[in-house]
Computed example of a mutant assay.
Amino acid sequence: MTRPKVSISWSSGKDAALAFYKTLQTNQLEVVHLHTTLSTGLRRVGMHGTPAALVEAQARAIGLPLSLLEIPADATNAAYEKAMLDFYAGLKAQGVEGVVFGDIYLEDLRTYREGLLQQAGLQGYYPLWQLPTNRLAAELLQEGISAVVCAASTRFFGQEAVGRAYDAAFIAGLPQGCDPCGEQGEFHTFVTHAPYFSQPVPLQLGRKVLRHYALSAHAQSEQGMWFIDLAEDKG
């Protein structure tokens, strides 16, 4: 039986990496492509802060073609949707039939994704959907997916969190109310190795930066996020 061809929505972090791994394990879909959305100009992955060059290094280790979709950080919703629909149309023209996401609990986000996919004539796949995040965190470590914390909310963390390995010690020390997978945006990660990587992506850890973001378009309050500059260690 021919397996549907899919592209992985690749955030560069652990949830996308585990969704990819589970997709390979079931052997019901053929993963042929990766795609990542970047902020135009900065050329970094959204709230992860991961530079495009590191995402490209991951794709080389995986051995799959990668599309980098650049969208302005201040793009209107209509502009964002047009960019995504144009991109999805290109995927479909190449024979891709669906997209795999690493979403776990966020119902509104899944509904939004499904609306775009339906317009594009593509199928969405969610291998982590509704699974307990403590179980997923344990599975990440058990299956040999290695990651570094690249962004962390000041609601839960100080600057010492960024640059740490996402490991058993990090998970055990999470503050009360912090999801072990960071599902509410508490932290984000960059994956340095997974079972389907040909080799690890070596990292250089750089400076730590604190940035602030409005909690919503109309909010008076802000949320702080610590980031760490990451680069591929070519030495």
Rank of each mutant, 00 (worst) to 15 (best):
H33C: 00
H33V: 00
L34V: 01
L34D: 01
L34R: 01
H35C: 03
H35S: 03
H35I: 01
H35P: 02
H35Y: 12
T36K: 03
T36N: 07
T36F: 02
T37I: 14
T37V: 13
L38A: 04
L38K: 10
L38G: 05
S39L: 11
T40I: 08
T40L: 15
T40W: 10
T40R: 13
G41R: 10
L42N: 15
L42P: 09
R43D: 13
R43I: 01
R43W: 13
R44Q: 13
V45P: 02
V45A: 02
G46M: 08
M47E: 04
M47I: 08
M47R: 11
M47L: 13
M47Q: 10
M47S: 13
M47T: 10
M47D: 08
H48Y: 09
H48A: 07
H48G: 09
H48F: 06
H48I: 05
H48Q: 13
G49M: 13
G49I: 13
G49Y: 14
T50K: 09
T50V: 15
P51N: 09
P51L: 09
P51Q: 08
P51M: 08
P51E: 06
V55C: 03
V55G: 05
E56C: 07
E56W: 04
A57L: 04
Q58D: 08
Q58C: 07
A59M: 04
R60A: 14
R60F: 04
R60K: 14
R60V: 09
A61I: 01
A61Y: 04
I62S: 00
G63R: 05
P65Q: 06
P65K: 06
P65I: 02
P65N: 05
L66D: 03
L66R: 02
S67Y: 01
S67A: 11
S67F: 01
L68M: 07
L68I: 05
L68Q: 11
L69N: 09
L69D: 08
L69A: 09
E70M: 06
E70R: 07
E70T: 12
I71L: 10
I71C: 09
I71N: 07
P72T: 06
P72E: 11
A73T: 13
A73D: 13
A73P: 12
A73R: 15
A73F: 13
A73C: 07
D74K: 09
A75P: 10
A75K: 11
A75D: 10
A75N: 10
T76F: 06
N77M: 11
N77Q: 14
N77S: 14
